[in-house]
Design a protein around this nucleic acid. Structure first.
Length: 538
DNA sequence: GAGACGATGAATATCACT
DNA sequence: AGTGATATTCATCGTCTC
């Protein structure tokens, strides 16, 4: 492991303690709130940059831009076991996985089998499971949804109660006991209010202690994200794969002026979190002061709904203007209802008399916590900007959760960023003043990779960015190579595609097994590989 | 080919009320 | 506890225009 990580004051944080942690709210530890102010903190990275940045060793041949085809043309030995052939056995588990894949099973289903049967399962057991699963799958298609078996009937070994937390707070004690995450419980219920273990603006309900399942404890730390309102069962599955950690559901409306209900599964400490400063505006009026002049009294919205990938047409806003222009004061009930419905559906704001408009990409950037023009330039179209932004993290929210890493890694971190998108996690860490030493990033969209690469250059990052376009390229060999190169990953972060989970999707809301959303299993696969390699003692 | 536009509801949660 | 009304949702696809 990287010497920088285990050094200095890390004795306060024992990797192996399952529970540890008994600290105060971020309040009392005001020393933590020495946050670099917003985007103007480019210097902070350098200030902390005492760690050796071995840029030189890391040959520029490896510098991502050429990774499109992922050229391992360096004459390092990595070449010898790159693709189809022998991956060096990082663990027995991997060997089995490899064998199963060679037998023709998908990596994904093989992973599932190993997860279900346990690491000690023999190859025969695994194969039997896979055969049974295939039969079951065929039967499944004939079964009514209600009779479909769901989740884990296998993990009887984990009968322990693994979610125990102490709650410091005044209200909502009635919810506490329900928080225990029973594996027989089919429903992962969403917290109300949706504040996870706590948000900066509402500390009345704030959990500062939790016990992680043993298998969940790092290294590395990991942070997984997806839409909270996924089809039933999705989060049970996600949680089950991610070492039975209870998801933390948080609505970003507590961090910014727009809603964004998301679930996060992570093994980070949860005490001493602190928010990015300055705090972003929390209401539409604060975010867009100019709209106040035109905002009708009968539009009672103070915040926006979820920022999505599609936006309203100019024609729609014109229809709304026409519908309103005939009325001097307050329009009749029917008209108000129509207009308000459209406004809520499309997140329209008032920009003139009877005139509404969709948010500009710049404004969406701001709401999501990105620097202005983050997605602008480089030949990126307006439509692509909306799409990329709509799929992104809300930076303030993620940064709040990741803020606990700052004290743990004063010299910076090595980051594995899967499904990076426009770099929400990278931006969050940067704004927290956590130096990025080495970042391995996977992102399918070339537009997005370009955005992150551009941001990396603009912010004069001192570390190294390696980007790939396909998670499949990250196999055991490649991971071992990078981990060997810079001493493992400190954080594995990623939000896998939500296409088949999102409520907006009329066409293919197929759940976790959907075409894109099934990439979650690659997140698990890669994370598990990293954990195994780390455990092997790098 | 790129982009603007409109059509395409179901699933799920919340809430007021009995 | 049950019920009906109400609200929200990281989207996809075909067609058209330029």
């Amino acid at each position: 492991m990287d010497g920088g990580n285990s050094g200095s004051e890390s004795d306060n944080y024992d990797w192996n303690t399952e529970d540890e942690l008994e600290i105060e709210n971020f309040h009392s530890s005001s020393s933590n709130i020495t946050v670099p102010n917003g985007e103007a903190n480019s210097g902070s990275g350098e200030a902390l940059d005492s760690s050796p940045q071995n840029d030189e060793e890391i040959d520029s041949d490896f510098h991502s831009s050429d990774v499109e085809g992922c050229s391992f043309d360096d004459d390092s030995d990595i070449d010898s076991f790159s693709d189809d052939e022998e991956i060096p056995p990082v663990s027995e588990k991997n060997v089995k996985l490899k064998k199963l894949v060679k037998m023709g099973y998908e990596v994904q289903e093989a992973s599932v089998a190993m997860e279900r049967c346990g690491v000690d399962a023999s190859l025969e057991e695994l194969i039997e499971f896979l055969c049974t699963a295939q039969v079951a799958k065929a039967e499944d298609a004939l079964m009514a949804p209600e009779e479909k078996p769901r989740c884990s009937d296998h993990t009887n070994k984990n009968k322990r109660r693994y979610y125990e937390c102490e709650v410091l707070g005044r209200k909502r004690p009635r919810d506490i006991e329900k928080k225990t995450f029973d594996e027989d419980d089919e429903n992962v219920h969403l917290p109300n209010p949706m504040i996870g273990f706590g948000v900066p603006t509402d500390e009345s309900f704030s959990i500062t202690l939790r016990t992680l399942p043993e298998a969940a404890v790092g290294p590395p730390y990991f942070y997984y994200e997806n839409v909270a309102l996924a089809p039933k069962g999705s989060w049970q599955t996600i949680s089950r794969f991610l070492y039975d950690i209870e998801p933390e559901f948080v609505d970003s409306k507590y961090f910014c002026a727009a809603a964004r209900k998301r679930g996060y599964v992570h093994n980070l400490p949860i005490q001493n979190r602190y928010p990015l400063l300055p705090l972003p505006p929390h209401t539409v009026h604060e975010a867009f002061p100019l709209t106040k002049k035109w905002w009708p009294s009968w539009d009672d919205r103070t915040q926006l709904n979820c920022l999505q990938t599609a936006y309203a047409s100019a024609k729609l806003t014109e229809r709304i203007r026409k519908a309103l222009e005939n009325y001097e004061g307050t329009p009749p009930e029917e008209v108000r209802k129509y207009v308000l419905n459209e406004c809520r559906k499309w997140n329209l704001v008032w920009v003139g008399r009877n005139k509404v408009a969709p948010l500009e990409p710049d404004e969406v950037e701001m709401l999501l916590g990105f620097p202005r023009n983050h997605t602008r330039g480089g030949g990126i179209s307006r439509i692509d900007r909306y799409k990329s932004l709509g799929n992104s993290f809300q930076v303030d929210t993620v940064a709040y959760h990741l803020s606990v890493l700052k004290d743990l890694y004063p010299n910076g971190i090595n980051l594995l960023s899967l499904f990076s998108g426009i770099g929400g996690a990278e931006v969050a860490l940067y704004r927290l003043g956590i130096p990025l030493k080495n970042v391995v990033s996977v992102e399918k969209s070339e537009v997005n990779r370009s955005i992150v690469r551009s941001w990396w250059d603009q912010t004069n990052q001192k570390g190294n960015l390696f980007d790939f376009d396909d998670v499949q390229l990250l196999d055991g060999a490649r991971l071992e190579y990078y981990m060997e190169l810079f001493g493992g990953f400190d954080l594995v972060v990623g939000g896998s595609p939500c296409n088949n989970l999102a409520g907006s999707n009329r066409v293919s809301r197929d759940g976790l097994e959907g075409k894109e959303s099934a990439l979650f299993y690659d997140y698990f696969r890669i994370l598990d590989l990293v954990k195994n390699i780390m455990a092997k003692g790098h």
